[in-house]
Design a protein around this nucleic acid. Structure first.
Lengths: 156, 156
DNA sequence: TTTGCTAAGTATGATTTTCGAACTCACACA
DNA sequence: TGTGTGAGTTCGAAAATCATACTTAGCAAA
């Protein structure tokens, strides 16, 4: 991923500009302020309204609106959950559609860690069984990739 | 990437929540309305103010603000450019830092195409030389990935 | 040297969103 | 009956967005 200035890419692409490659739609749905952070929370397994709110510092009313929007669009699912000995509470968990945003999220983390901090990642992604470190990358389509369920996340 | 409901992941992660993995920073910088679409335009090689504006439909004053912000943060670089027989104009092009957002962008496209449209991608990514189709994926860190300069984008 | 054209911005006032603080409501437990 | 907790709702002030109109700079033909 090192390509200085004018690549063949840049030259050939101008006509592509207006084509809607699904990204404009995704952008409308996902790239409002707070939304990606909410989804990241869901990734981390944070389910509860007040926990999400405290973790990311979003105002209540905005969180309410965002959650509603994400549920309507099947990124999150609202389901009651029960912690031992506490009463049932509404919780928000990722749907399959939502879980597939992991790539986008990890790509964003990877970039942010590299360019917006010291360069050191704050979270390590490893294969759960083998321990091999993982990364998001552009590869040939038939390369076999790691399933979300096989990831081990560690805070550094 | 198929993992239904409660994975080990979800259970182990709760404590990670507040840790700042660079994504919060990235989110602040990149996930304002319009910003990713502007970067996508830059990817496509669209350099000019009015072209960007028309392609994505952003108001002038907002585009001015976003470009300024992106230049200040070294995602874009403002440089004059000259088309044969026309006069020099300011143009906006990606820096190396900006170019590395390609993964995030492609991941977003991939997701959007799959879930927000018919499922058909609107743009194909292929290796420039071999023609092999490409994808964004989570892989072992030592897997060798495809350089941006070796990509061939085709509108379908 | 004036007039006209093109493209990159600025300015501005109306509209929409966000923000934060206070309030409500349902439920459990004592 | 009262107290606490957690998930929202309400609401007015502040900030951001939007559309439209205006300005500015460079060049070229008249």
């Amino acid at each position: 991923m090192s390509n200085s200035g004018e690549s063949k890419l840049t030259k050939r692409l101008a006509p592509v500009a207006k084509c809607d490659c699904g990204m404009a739609l995704a952008s409308e749905l996902l790239l409002e302020k707070w939304t990606m952070l909410i989804i990241r929370e869901a990734f981390y397994g944070v389910k509860r309204f007040d926990d999400i709110r405290e973790d990311i510092g979003i105002p209540r009313s905005v969180l309410t609106a965002r959650l509603k929007h994400l549920v309507e669009n099947q990124i999150l699912e609202k389901k009651q959950y029960q912690v031992e000995g506490a009463r049932a509470r509404p919780g928000y968990v990722l749907t399959a559609k939502g879980r597939e945003l992991s790539l986008t999220i990890f790509a964003l983390m990877q970039w942010g860690d590299k360019h917006l901090k010291d360069g050191q990642p704050a979270i390590a992604l490893n294969h759960r069984d083998t321990g091999v470190p993982l990364k998001v990358a552009l590869v040939e389509a038939n390369t076999n990739d790691v399933d979300l369920a096989e990831i081990d996340l560690t805070v550094l």
